[in-house]
Amino acid sequence: MLEIKNLHVKLEDEDKQILKGVDLTVPAGEVHAIMGPNGSGKSTLSYVLSGRDGYAVTAGEAALDGQSLLEMEPEQRAAAGLFLAFQYPVEIPGVGNMTFLRTAVNAQRKARGEEELSAAEFLKLIRQKAATLKIDSEMLKRAVNVGFSGGEKKRNEILQMAMLEPSMCILDETDSGLDVDAMRLVADGVNALRRPDRSFLVITHYQRLLDHIRPDVVHIMADGRIVRSGGPELALEVEQNGYGDLLAEVG
């Protein structure tokens, strides 16, 4: 369960307040969506939760399964069960996808005091997970995200999620740059990972993705706050009327 209380965040180097009191609770097993216009603070929220540099928390707190996140290093947050699927997955030439994933999986296991996976165990596991995401072994052999299409990059993110088995997954505009088929494939991958002890926070501009990943709750974010929350119908309302009416309504 992710609990965010009164979270205030500014840019580290500039006197610019981006989050102005975010309150949000995502109970275990639920899928929540955050929608909102450009510049409302959606991506900042995902970065602050996962520990990216460049932001200063000026007030508030965030906890995952009772553990306070904000003091942790990014790798500690990951080991605690947080996963961020990037809007723009990073290309790392010269580092094999397998090496990267095995390093990540074993680093997390080590951090949690679990035994590391042997090469054979890892290989078996990744082959099995990759197959369900239609990721072929050639893609696993390539350097991380290098030469991957937009769809392949996002599938690779979901593969990482599947391998790392987080309790809280944040998807930052995972639908951006995807055609309909690729989006369906990614959504199927996410849906296959739904479990009673795993929550999702899906950040998106469009309702489209939410047709495929059905949310339990939809939040509208504007000017650094959650201004409205509701059921899936809220996303449809945004799709039909845009943000203008909705934001005027909440003042």
Binding site: S50, G51, R52, D53, E73, P74, E75, R77, A78, A79, F83, L84, F86, P89, V90, I92, P93, G94, V95, T99, F100, T103, A104, V105, A107, Q108, A111, A143, Q160, L164
Partner: peptide
């Protein structure tokens, strides 16, 4: 940040990025 967000400790992430370079 990408590497660290996957749980790779900072020092190890730097090693990987140096090898990448």
């Amino acid at each position: 940040f990408y590497l660290r967000s996957r749980g790779v400790p900072r020092e190890r992430a730097i090693v990987l990025l140096v090898l990448s370079f």
